[in-house]
């Protein structure tokens, strides 16, 4: 039997009420006047090499505020590993890059 008071007792979550009544207000539910929207352009091939990104046509589209590419995020990103380990041969662990947007 679960305890009904003290340490170890289960407690009712206060946030449940809004989730259960449809008033959660998730990011997709927010719609403010003049709100901008973001669209991520993903690779159309499963495995390839990114040679260049040409944003000229996209920038000319009506309503487009700004097109971002990896260049806008130089020096940003990466997920540092707290505990670098070595393999059996003593070689350092390979750390994959985690850029904000795809680099060439």
């Amino acid at each position: 039997m679960p305890k009904d008071h003290g340490i170890g007792a289960s407690s009712k979550r206060r946030e449940d009420i809004r989730f259960l009544t449809g008033t959660g207000n998730y990011t997709d539910d927010i719609n403010l006047r003049g709100q901008a929207h973001v669209v991520f352009v993903r690779s159309q091939v499963a495995h390839g090499r990114l040679n260049k990104v040409d944003t000229r046509d996209a920038e000319k589209m009506p309503g487009v505020i700004r097109v971002f590419t990896a260049k806008d995020f130089e020096g940003v990103g990466g997920i540092p590993c707290g505990w670098q380990i070595t393999d059996r041969a003593g070689k350092p662990m390979l750390e994959p890059k985690h850029p904000v947007l795809a680099e060439g």
Binding site: R13, D16, I17, F19, L20, T21, G22
Partner: peptide, 22 residues
Amino acid sequence: SLSVIQQAFQDHHGLQCGFCTP
């Protein structure tokens, strides 16, 4: 107030993030 079903979801921790809950 919560309906019987909604109340049961709260009482039995039938939700976490709540996105699928509706």
